[in-house]
């Protein structure tokens, strides 16, 4: 007997409708069929109730508006989890709970939303963190670019120190957890501004495991900083300015993938300023450098960890490099993001 298939208004359109944001049946159906399977333990109450934890809490928030939504090596869903988890990890906190807020554009294919939410679930599991509460709103077509995500994250500090630029001391070693520039170039490839023989994959990944491993092994860490939009150079300038010290690196020691270097030559980019999403700088006492590198290299995401330089005293707030030719160069903050140039 052929089953009667009644035209279900929800399935048929296969797209997000304004009504999905209306708080009524369609919204609940969206939550049941899209969000519940992926983010099962997220409450449908007004707020999640969290168990007491011992130790200070770290709390962060971030928004993700990346275009396109999918790129080699990741998507807006996994990126949202990694970005939030990494912000907590940079304080030396064990990430525990995330909140996720979606702004959906009317007309977004449901299939796209399902893929992104599934990717979010996988990334959360891999970083062993839970999405405990969420929210969804829908805006008219054209008022946003498919989908935006806002997150917040809570982690617990298993130590009593405050990591950050103010803890950095003259003579400290500067370590870098991996090669730079892959995220920025992968996104350009996804916008088909660049095509590769072998695709360049974003380095989007959680850094919490290697960081927690360092701290649990008792390695004395002064400052951790994940490199994001402004790349390695901007992160170093921020640290130098807030620590009022002079960060000096050797450019030759900074790993850059060949295809990333090729793309930077073509676009006129300096790889030190290209975006990353799974790479960090670790600044710690000279004596701890070797031990930290050995531990970091045991984790896949930081397997290429390398020492790139040293913290000096004067002049305060400066970042300089020794180039491959032995000459020296000053790194400054760009006034805006790098744009492809012809001159």
């Amino acid at each position: 007997m052929t089953s009667l298939v009644c035209p279900n208004p929800f399935e048929e359109s296969g797209r997000v409708l304004l009504a999905h944001g209306g708080g009524g049946r369609l919204m609940h159906r969206l939550i049941e069929s899209v969000f519940r399977p992926a983010l099962g333990n997220a409450t449908d109450l007004d707020a999640a109730v969290l168990p007491p934890t011992n130790g200070r809490l770290a709390f962060t928030t971030d928004s993700f508006v990346i275009k396109p939504l999918f790129f080699p090596g990741g998507d807006i869903g996994s990126l949202a989890v990694h970005g939030t988890v990494n912000d907590l990890a940079m304080m030396g906190a064990r990430p525990l709970w995330l909140s996720v807020g979606f702004i959906l554009e009317e007309g977004l294919p449901l299939e796209t939303l399902k893929r992104i939410v599934a990717s979010m679930r996988q990334a959360a599991q891999a970083a062993n963190v839970q999405v405990v509460v969420g929210d969804t709103k829908v805006v008219e077509h054209g008022r946003c670019d498919g989908l935006y995500v806002n997150t917040s994250g809570i982690g617990v500090l298993g130590h009593d120190r405050v990591l950050g630029p103010q803890a950095v001391r003259e003579g400290d070693a500067i370590l870098l957890s991996g090669d730079v520039g892959r995220h920025g170039i992968a996104v350009l490839a996804a916008r088909n501004e660049l095509e590769f023989e072998v695709p360049v994959r974003s380095d989007s990944a959680s850094l919490s495991q290697p960081v927690l491993d360092l701290l649990e092994a008792g390695v004395e860490v002064h400052c951790l900083r994940d490199l994001t939009r402004g790349g390695l150079a901007t992160a170093l300038v921020e640290i130098a300015r807030s620590s009022a010290l002079h960060l000096h690196i050797h450019e030759e020691s900074v790993p850059v993938q060949d295809a990333v270097r090729g793309a930077c030559e073509l676009l006129g980019f300096d790889p030190l300023y290209v975006a990353n999403e799974g790479c960090m700088v670790v600044i710690l006492p000279e004596a701890e450098a070797e031990r930290a590198l050995t531990r970091l290299r045991q984790h896949e995401v930081t397997a290429q960890a390398v020492r790139i330089g040293t913290v000096l005293a004067d002049p305060p707030g400066a970042v300089t490099t020794t180039t491959a030719l032995g000459s020296r160069r000053v790194l400054d903050m760009l006034s805006g993001e790098q744009l492809p140039r012809i001159c």
């Binding site: 000096h248 000096l312 300089t320 000053v330």
Partner: peptide
């Protein structure tokens, strides 16, 4: 501009 403190930046740098 980027090298405005150049003398002070580079004079003191004795790359280790």
């Amino acid at each position: 501009y980027r090298y405005r403190h150049r003398e002070s930046y580079l004079a003191t740098v004795t790359p280790p």
